[in-house]
Simulated assay, not measured.
Amino acid sequence: MNFLYISPTFPKYYYNFCDALKKKGITVLGIGDTPLEKMNQEMKDSFQEYQYLPSLENYDDLMKATAYFIYKYGRIDFIASNIEYWLESEAKLRDDFNIARGIRGEAIEEVKIKSVMKDLFIKEEIPTAPYEMVTTFRKAKTFAKHHHYPLILKPDNGMGAMHVHKIHNGKELAHFFGEIHDYNYIMEDYVDGIVETYDGLCNSKRDVLFDSSMIFPTPLMDIVNGQKTSVSIIQKDVPKDLRQLGQKILRLFPSEGSFFHIECFRLKKDCAGYHKGDLVVSEVNMRLPGGHIPEVMNYIHHVDLYEMYAQMIQDDTTTQKAQRDYYGVNVGRRNNGKYHYKSREIKYKYQDQLVMVEHVPAVLSDALGDTSYVAKFKTMQEVRSFINECTK
């Protein structure tokens, strides 16, 4: 079995997927933009062979590198990066080389294009905020006339909170459309709620092998745009209604043999036609939560997601069972932030609870902060105390 892994060294932990696959006897072939001489030995040992490309953005080079591997090793059975940025390139490679497993063709739009995603939610009666494609100022004004400010403008094909805008009034709307933008935008009702995610791994039959859930007390849009301290909490267990809704969604989308990250809002008050406490779905992603979060899940749930993924690829199942004894909390501080407690004080006071302190790469720091403090606790009271002292 031949497995092509794209960008296996970013985020830095992802080479562990290659290592776990290789230990299963799978031939692992890597293509990435990190020169071989800049890798440590563990990374180098995780591949059968690796090709360096100065940029993975050049699809012709990516296709030629894949063709070389096929010439040398035979047919590629799987392609993955587990990163949203490369999902479209993966799908194109599957189409061009007729690789059956994974998302292909137009199916990629269901997990990349927000309007396609939302139309499917509406068709299947999945709760979601009303929206409209707004290619002109006139269309945006019409939508705003029939809905209440604030409203959200986001790229139809975008990632995370990049280029997402909260519009409070007609003046801000006019200003937005007075500027030149590189994206097609959708406009939707603002949903006042706490972000809850449904995260995990599906096998080829879309059965959930592992699941988890995070809470973001502050919306990611506000964290990124306001450069605020990033806080997320991994719940001990997934709430029943979130699990039911998440698994219904996974049956509608191309989730076979994939990690997933479904973002919802738990409403703080009645809005957008829904009631306080309801779950309203924002979007679906067929990849892991970003950065070092998979490592955090490993610590909190006492699993090995790298080995679990490799076993799913080989046997379509897992023998691991997640433990649900602890809450996890991730606080991402800013380098320019003024905090009452210094890093050394946090590390000393919580030395028994901290599981990692991580310096976040610049490309991920807008959402995750510059330095991430990850700890686990038995109670939410302890979680809140930790958050208060890290953010004070």
Rank of each mutant, 00 (worst) to 15 (best):
R384S: 13
M133G: 02
T136N: 08
D211F: 04
S81M: 06
S365T: 04
D241H: 08
Q314M: 13
G178Y: 07
E263H: 10
A174G: 07
R251M: 14
L21P: 01
K228R: 14
A67Q: 15
F143Q: 03
V231P: 02
I103M: 05
G291Q: 01
F260S: 08
S55A: 11
A375T: 03
R206Y: 02
D370R: 01
A161H: 05
H261T: 14
K378A: 11
K123A: 13
K228H: 11
I223E: 01
F177P: 05
L305E: 00
I194A: 05
P219Y: 01
P130N: 12
L364I: 02
Q235E: 14
V357W: 01
V191P: 02
I152D: 03
K236W: 03
I167C: 06
F10T: 14
V357H: 02
K92Q: 15
Y198G: 14
I186K: 00
A367L: 05
G332T: 00
Q351S: 12
H302F: 08
L245N: 07
V134P: 02
A100Y: 10
S89K: 12
E88Q: 13
H181V: 06
E295K: 13
D33R: 13
D270R: 09
G328V: 03
G257K: 01
F259T: 06
Y348F: 11
I79A: 07
K154E: 04
M162F: 06
F47V: 09
L368C: 10
I262N: 02
C271Q: 03
K139T: 08
I6W: 00
A140T: 02
Y13V: 07
S232A: 12
M221R: 10
H302M: 11
Y5P: 03
P361I: 07
V281G: 03
M159P: 02
K276M: 12
V296W: 01
S89Y: 08
T391R: 01
S230C: 11
R206W: 01
Y15N: 08
H292L: 05
F137R: 11
F47G: 07
Y190T: 05
D45M: 08
V111L: 05
K123F: 09
T142D: 12
T34S: 07
Y14Q: 14
I122D: 04
K171F: 09
I180T: 15
D366E: 09
C390P: 03
E88C: 10
V116W: 04
I108M: 08
A322N: 09
I103N: 04
D199M: 09
Y306P: 00
Q41M: 11
T318A: 12
Y14H: 13
Y350D: 04
Y13I: 08
T34D: 04
G257A: 02
A20Y: 00
T229W: 00
I83R: 09
V331A: 02
Q314Y: 09
Y299W: 10
N40A: 06
I99D: 01
Y50F: 12
C18M: 06
K392I: 11
Y348H: 13
V331K: 00
V303A: 09
I249M: 14
K376M: 15
V296Q: 03
S230A: 15
P150Y: 01
K118N: 06
I79G: 04
P294I: 05
K112R: 15
